[in-house]
Design a binder for these strands. Sequence first.
DNA 1: CTATCCATGTAACTAGTTACATGATTCT
DNA 2: AGAATCATGTAACTAGTTACATGGATAG
Lengths: 186, 186
Amino acid sequence: MPDITTTGGALLGLLSKGPRSGYDLITFADRSIAHFWPISRALVYRELARLEQLGMAKATMVKGRKAPDKRTYTISRAGANALAEWLDEPSLGTGRVKNEILLKCFFADRMSGDRLEALLDDYRAALLADLADLESITARLDGVPRARYARLTARHGIHSTRAHLAWIEEVWTELSIERKEARTPH
Amino acid sequence: MPDITTTGGALLGLLSKGPRSGYDLITFADRSIAHFWPISRALVYRELARLEQLGMAKATMVKGRKAPDKRTYTISRAGANALAEWLDEPSLGTGRVKNEILLKCFFADRMSGDRLEALLDDYRAALLADLADLESITARLDGVPRARYARLTARHGIHSTRAHLAWIEEVWTELSIERKEARTPH
DNA sequence: CTATCCATGTAACTAGTTACATGATTCT
DNA sequence: AGAATCATGTAACTAGTTACATGGATAG
């Protein structure tokens, strides 16, 4: 019944590993769940305020010595319950995937010149960077039992990224076949 | 300079193929770009109103005979320019991927019993449904030159979906190895 | 000694979703 | 005749982003 949003669930999940400030949660989230659930800074603070209001987390002010004062949040009993409930709820669908590059590719016949090729090259570069990142993450987590599920989610990223790269190659071969055909008409 | 949003670009792209009403655009988008750029109904209407206000599309009222009156939108010269500009802009990153199932998987050690298995089973079912859908789309578009890019985006979905399915199998094997180890401790 | 970064947040805006409304048509 | 569906949209809400603010620490 406690109307938990997905981002709220994510924050409760992170808090369930120990008390953290908003800032801590942001940096931690960036290096863990951001690949499949990015959260912007401002949203973290707003959601934390809401979770506190719902009684799912408790904030305590901590005087800063070499930094500004901050609020440290601790998950409450109610919060732990809500987290468990949310985790146990079935999730429908396959996840929202918004890909602007694909959108542009869909309209590629409206593009000028070889913009599509440039688009694909940029895409590949970004994917390769991602892949390297993901691979260093899994390497670091390999054989660490506590990090089992973190590693598995990174593995998902690897599978997925490689698939995107393979798709790019497919597009390139199809495009080059066409260009050859265009040079030798019927 | 005309501050075009991505969803605005998508609508202009669809309008560039011919005049359409909001309703037409919604149904068309659902069967074309929705796999990588879902747009909700209400947002289509709001974006169309904005595009009209910006002078990128022109609306004409059409009396309905067996249906309510409707506005049909036609892309304007300025709209076509904005579309071309937007398509030519570089797009950074690899696309936003929000996957609630992965998020839950990340927190699987907080889950009760075999909820993770159920989660993965649901995920697989949804992916298989998606895959069938995507395969029927590509089959339909195969060898239709006009639909070249539409087909390629569907191919992207196929690559990606298969990767997700492969990941599920990987998780299953890892989980079953662990269960075996749990039965025969050190 | 000043420019940049760390650590913390707030305020204002934009994008996206859900719920509501309506009348005609076709299905049972 | 009543229920579901088509074909349109509007209104109200929620989620997410971008821009702003601040003061101490550290690097050059």
